[in-house]
Design a protein around this nucleic acid. Structure first.
Length: 518
RNA sequence: GGCGCUAUCGUCUAGGGGUUAGGACGGAAGAUUCUCAAUCUUCAAACACGGGUUCGAUUCCCGUUAGCGCUACCA
C-alpha cells in the first residue's frame, strides 16, 4: 500500500444488538486513528448473517456510536463514494469477483459434500494432526467442473492458497508468518450462493480502499486467508492492526455473564460517554511516559498512537471506569448532570413516566420548582457517586424518610444507646417544635445551627454524641451530607407537590418522636 | 490435537542490557469533617519458570508453563 495514500479505516459491526464494549473499543481506535491522520472513517454493516441480523439493530448501533461521540464519514446513512455500505446490498459485487477468480484459475469449484468433508477432516486430523481440506476438487478439470455446475450440481467456490508461507505486517504485533501447510483452501462462496465472511471482508475493504484494517485479534488467524485473497485478486494488501481481546475479571473473554458490557448498559447506569471513551482508550494503550490518565476526545486524537497499542489482552476494570466517571461527573456542567439526573429521579418516583431506552429526562412533566429542587439534590450528591443511577438511592433519606426504620436500624443502635442521646434529643425536639420557622417548613440553616448550638450549650454534649443522634432523627442515619445543605432541601421539598410528600425537619422530628414513644 | 497470539504490582500500564522498575485504579494508614463520602498525604504491592547470549539480563534468543484466539459451506 502506498505510504502516502490517504488513511481510510472502517468499523464493520454486525447488527445483532447493542454494541459491546469490545467492539466499541475497536471503533474508537479506528476513529482516533482516522481523525488523527485526517483520514476517512467508514461504517459498514455486516449483515450477511441473515438469521441474526435485524434492521432495527442497525439504528441502535449507530445511536450507540453517536452517544459515545464517534462519527463516520461514509456509511449506510450518510452514503459515500464507495457504497453501498450494507453487505446485503453488495451480493452482486461478491458474485462477480468470485466468477472472476474462477475464470482466472485462482479459485475452483468444490463438489464435496458435507459428509465427505467431515470424514476428510477427521482422517486428516488423525494423520497430520490438523484438519485441513485435501484440495481434492482443486485437481478437477475446470471445464468439466463448469459443466457439472451448469447441469445443476451444487458446489461451493474455493480459493487456491499458494504453496508458500504467507506473511503480513501487523502494526501492533510486528511481522506475522503462517505456513501454507496449515491453511486449507477456504470456501469463499457457499453452495447456497451466499458468500463467506472472510471473502466479503476482503472485497469490501479493497473496494472501499481501506488502508488500515484495525480489528479484534480474533481475526488474526484468518488474516492469511485474506492476504491470499488480496493477492489472488491482484489488489494491494492493507496494513493490519489486531487489537487484543478485552477480558472479564476471571480472565475469560468479556461477555454478558460479566454484567454490564453493552453501551446501552453503561448509558443506563449513568456512565458519561467521555468517561467511557477515556477508559476504553486506556485499555491497551498508554501515552508516552505512561503517567497520564485523563484525556478528552481531542487530546486522545492528538496523543493516540496505534504503534503504542499493547498486544496483550486487558481485563476490564469497572472500578477504574467508575473512578474516571466520578471525575467527569465533577467536571461536567451542573446543568448537564442535573438534566441527566432528572431521568433517574423520575424513574424512581414515577416509573411510568420514563421510557427505558432513553436517558433524556421527561422535564415537560415536572413543574420548574420540582426540577430545580431535584437540581439542588443533584448538586449536593453528584460529586460523591460513581454513576448517576446511584442518585435516587443516595437521595432516599430525603425523598422517603422512615422513622421506624431509623429507630430499629442496627447501624443506629449504638448511637441511640449513648448515655447523652436522650437528653440531646429531648432538647432538640422541644426546640424544633417550638421554632417559628420550622413550623412553617421554612427553617433556615442558620436557625438550625443556632438550635444545635443551644442544645450543645444546654446539654454540654458535643461532637459525635451531639450530631449523630440529631442526624438519625433528620436523615434516619448517622452519616450523610452536611446539615446546612440538607435543611433547605428538606424544607423546600415539603412545599412541593410530589407523588410522595417530602417531610420537612419539623415533620421528621415529630414522626421520630411518635415512633420512638411506641 | 494442530497453528497463532500473549506474559511487569490484584487490575490497567510506563520502561528497557546496568533504574531505589515509574504512574493510575483498587487496598492499607494518616490528615480533614459531627458522620459517611469526597479530597489531600503516606505506605504496601510486580518483571511467570528454565536455559542460553553477555562482564551484566526483567529487557535479546530458545524452550516450558499458563491464558486467549483460530482451526466451518459462523461472523
Amino acid at each position: 500500500m502506498a505510504l502516502n495514500s490517504p488513511v481510510r479505516v472502517r468499523f464493520a459491526p454486525s447488527p445483532t444488538g447493542h454494541l459491546h464494549v469490545g467492539n466499541v473499543r475497536t471503533a474508537l481506535f479506528n476513529w482516533l486513528f482516522a481523525r488523527q491522520n485526517g483520514g476517512t472513517m467508514v461504517l459498514r454493516i455486516e449483515d450477511t448473517d441473515l438469521e441474526r441480523s435485524e434492521a432495527r439493530f442497525e439504528g441502535m448501533l449507530m445511536a450507540d456510536l453517536k452517544w459515545l461521540g464517534l462519527d463516520w464519514d461514509e456509511g449506510p446513512d450518510t452514503g459515500g463514494e464507495y457504497g453501498p455500505y450494507r453487505q446485503s446490498d453488495r451480493l452482486e459485487i461478491y458474485r462477480e469477483h468470485a466468477e472472476r477468480l474462477l475464470s482466472e484459475g485462482k479459485a475452483y469449484l468444490c463438489f464435496c459434500s458435507e459428509e465427505e468433508l467431515q470424514k476428510e477432516r477427521e482422517s486428516a486430523a488423525a494423520e497430520k494432526g490438523q484438519a485441513i481440506y485435501s484440495g481434492k476438487c482443486r485437481r478437477l478439470d475446470p471445464e468439466e467442473a463448469k459443466k457439472r455446475r451448469s447441469n445443476g450440481e451444487t458446489c461451493a467456490v474455493r480459493l487456491k492458497i499458494p504453496e508458500r508461507p504467507i506473511r503480513f505486517h501487523d502494526i501492533v504485533r510486528g511481522d506475522v508468518e503462517f505456513s501454507n501447510e496449515v491453511v486449507s483452501d477456504p470456501v469463499i462462496v457457499r453452495s447456497s450462493g451466499m458468500p463467506v465472511y472472510n471473502y466479503v471482508v476482503v472485497i469490501d475493504d479493497a473496494l472501499m480502499k481501506i488502508t488500515h484494517v484495525i480489528r479484534g485479534d480474533d481475526h488474526l488467524s484468518n488474516t492469511p486467508k485474506q492476504v491470499a485473497l488480496y493477492e489472488a485478486l491482484g489488489w494491494p494488501v492493507p496494513e493490519f492492526a489486531h487489537l487484543s481481546t478485552i477480558l472479564g475479571a476471571d480472565r475469560e473473554r468479556l461477555s454478558k455473564r460479566h454484567g454490564a458490557t453493552s453501551i446501552a448498559n453503561f448509558r443506563e447506569m449513568g456512565v458519561l460517554p467521555e468517561a467511557l471513551m477515556n477508559y476504553l482508550a486506556l485499555l491497551g494503550w498508554a501515552p508516552t511516559g505512561g503517567t497520564r490518565e485523563i484525556f478528552s476526545a481531542q487530546e486522545l486524537i492528538k496523543e493516540f498512537s496505534l504503534k503504542r497499542v499493547t498486544p496483550s489482552p486487558a481485563v476490564f476494570d469497572m472500578e477504574k471506569l467508575y473512578w474516571l466517571n466520578r471525575h467527569y461527573i465533577k467536571e461536567a456542567s451542573p446543568e448537564r448532570i442535573e438534566k441527566l439526573a432528572l431521568w433517574y429521579f423520575s424513574r424512581e418516583i414515577a416509573p411510568d413516566l420514563v421510557k427505558p431506552d432513553e436517558t433524556s429526562a421527561p422535564d415537560y412533566f415536572w413543574p420548574p420548582t420540582i426540577i430545580n429542587w431535584f437540581g439542588s439534590i443533584t448538586r449536593l450528591l453528584s460529586p460523591y457517586v460513581d454513576r448517576l443511577e446511584q442518585l435516587p438511592d443516595r437521595a432516599k433519606p430525603i425523598l422517603d424518610y422512615d422513622a421506624k426504620a431509623a429507630i430499629h436500624s442496627p447501624d443506629n443502635a449504638e448511637a441511640l444507646a449513648w448515655p447523652h442521646t436522650d437528653a440531646v434529643l429531648a432538647r432538640f425536639t422541644v426546640k424544633i417544635l417550638e421554632d417559628e420557622q420550622a413550623r412553617e417548613g421554612k427553617l433556615t440553616p442558620e436557625q438550625f445551627n443556632k438550635i444545635v448550638s443551644e442544645v450543645k450549650a444546654e446539654t454540654g454534649v458535643k461532637g459525635k454524641e451531639l450530631f449523630h443522634p440529631i442526624r438519625i432523627v433528620i436523615m434516619g442515619s448517622h452519616s450523610g451530607p452536611a446539615f446546612d445543605k440538607l435543611v433547605p432541601i428538606l424544607e423546600e421539598g415539603s412545599h412541593l407537590d410530589m407523588p410522595t410528600h417530602v417531610l420537612n425537619v419539623r415533620e421528621r422530628v415529630e414522626a421520630f418522636g411518635k415512633a420512638r414513644a411506641k
